[in-house]
Design a protein around this nucleic acid. Sequence first.
DNA 1: AGGTCCGTTTAAAGCGCTTTAATAGGTCGT
DNA 2: ACGACCTATTAAAGCGCTTTAAACGGACCT
Lengths: 356, 356
Amino acid sequence: MPSPDGSSPAAAPTPPLPPVTSAPPGRNRRPRLSDVAARAGVSAGLVSLVLRHQPGPSEQTRARVLEAARELGYRADRTASLLARRRSQHLGVVMDVRNTFHAELVAEMDAAATRRGYDLVLSTLTPTRDERTATENLLDFRCEGLILIGPEDRAGWLTSLGQELPVVAVGRRLKSDSLDVVRAADDLGVAQAVAHLAGLGHRDIAFVDGGRGTIASDRRRGYRQAMRGHGLAEQTRIIPGDHTEEAGIRAAPELLNRHATAVVASNDRCAVGLLDRLARLGTEVPASMSVVGYDDSMLARLGHVDLTTVSQDAPGQAEEAITLLAERLDDGRAEPREIVLPPRLVLRSTTAPPAP
Amino acid sequence: MPSPDGSSPAAAPTPPLPPVTSAPPGRNRRPRLSDVAARAGVSAGLVSLVLRHQPGPSEQTRARVLEAARELGYRADRTASLLARRRSQHLGVVMDVRNTFHAELVAEMDAAATRRGYDLVLSTLTPTRDERTATENLLDFRCEGLILIGPEDRAGWLTSLGQELPVVAVGRRLKSDSLDVVRAADDLGVAQAVAHLAGLGHRDIAFVDGGRGTIASDRRRGYRQAMRGHGLAEQTRIIPGDHTEEAGIRAAPELLNRHATAVVASNDRCAVGLLDRLARLGTEVPASMSVVGYDDSMLARLGHVDLTTVSQDAPGQAEEAITLLAERLDDGRAEPREIVLPPRLVLRSTTAPPAP
DNA sequence: AGGTCCGTTTAAAGCGCTTTAATAGGTCGT
DNA sequence: ACGACCTATTAAAGCGCTTTAAACGGACCT
């Protein structure tokens, strides 16, 4: 670790420098509150009140202070405010910056947080930065609450984190008595997809699985139940897979073997893989095969792909997550809540009635 | 604006509470440096030294302090450190969280920054948060230097920002005597694409333009020069467009009208639009038309798309950006630098020799 | 003994802001 | 004229940490 500054504490006998405060204002010293105060001829406390639009100061001083601040180009040092204020008004978000769904959520959360007077601090996962590291980083920043997008760490750890400060887990089903959860009803989403296909007249509706994991199993369960609900239990076909394009590519021939006329993929990436392989195998979509994805990712929206899929309602999830934190922080709620949002089927061009 | 805490400054005559410091440690009060010090039976200053691995403390106290810190679950308050330290070791990054290329850059920057002992603070653009707002947010956090990814604000503003603190603009050509620039040689990248196609035997190589903007004009210039260089000045065909899929979709028929056998698109999104429309028009890629994109985005890498494209070397740009800041901050460099990285052609499956 | 020097340790002064109790000046009633 | 009671303002005490000068206690010389 490189030493933060050049001077080793106990080495060179440094000449006695004058204390920083009485030093001549360096060319580039950032103006401080006291500078504004001096210029306006009032006390620092008053300046603080004025700049934060607090009641108290008279109109006249208010104007003088604002003028002085403007002239000096004053900009409050947030670090110092944070320290002095009891509250930081910061919410931390742990996300994977390369995940487009996360990105979408964050953008919406930022808007929602701003509306409530909070600021977001982002901490991203990278190959060299795991969930805990990212989280601790946020704690160091004095975040008052945390939002973890699609957390994968042990439930135990999450729970103990939730005992320290308000924490919202987004997108992962999780039973814990210390933290809040926002997620979409994945089983319901798949059910909607199946209902849509069944409504079009399909009976041989297959499902490409998403592998292990809470999300995948919810979707699988949704598929099973929906098929049963439509009297298609016999036609249930679960093709092993995961959440990558690769899985879709592998699943495509299997689909044809099994004479499926429609398929629900565990997510959009997988569906895109399916579309690709099907095209190469000469199977027309949607004429000979209907395909439904899951996530309504940017991928699905490409004119090029135009995939019928299930939307997870990112704006809704974002809004709810922020609301949950605000409830804990501002209204003193203590008991955990779980918000389950209904997904929404987005009809595009990859589904149609089966060939006669 | 909701008042941050419940007590209005001049209202109810609050009973004289004891000062916070002497209050009984609340159940959930986060342990402070002084708590650790008390527990270890030493002074706060010493604890500070130990926890930051500074020379001075004896082995024995070092052990005692670490033990005490561990027992209390002590975690330094970064806000307070920042305030007390002269340097924050923070670098701010302004990015658009929904842009995958930005995301990739950020991930790489984070690694590079960590290696040099800096921490990244992210500030994202949203529809309700423009470049200046995002930037000012970072300044409030006491960032020592700033990285602006693909900044679009006026050069004048950027320049004056650069006079306040070290600033690196990434991905935008920009002449300014106050800030550093990292970018890829876009003209060279397009030239490589043209050379590749010419090498395969193509002569009618068209270009779908990216519209106005520095980046687009660099690429256009690269195309023109390269065509001339290959003795194909006569075959130069610039089809108007922009950086969206839509542009590619519109350009495709035009391409066929003009009897092009190959095309370089101004970016990947545009290329994907092209691929889509070409497929619907019954033109096989690469058999009847070769297509090259630009950016090597995730889009291009999808098995499904598998687009030959030009990579902008995100890791390289990220590394250079961090290095530039480190040079300014740690080595005291003052004169501006511009780093231009060579792009790299990535061969995939959308290019082939022309049909005989 | 007395002094010097060393490695350790501590007390105290900040960092730049917020907050609160106290103060200063009015106005008003009697 | 006096106290009561406003409102506008200030001084000062923190927030939790870092940093510096000064203090301490040996060990080691003369």
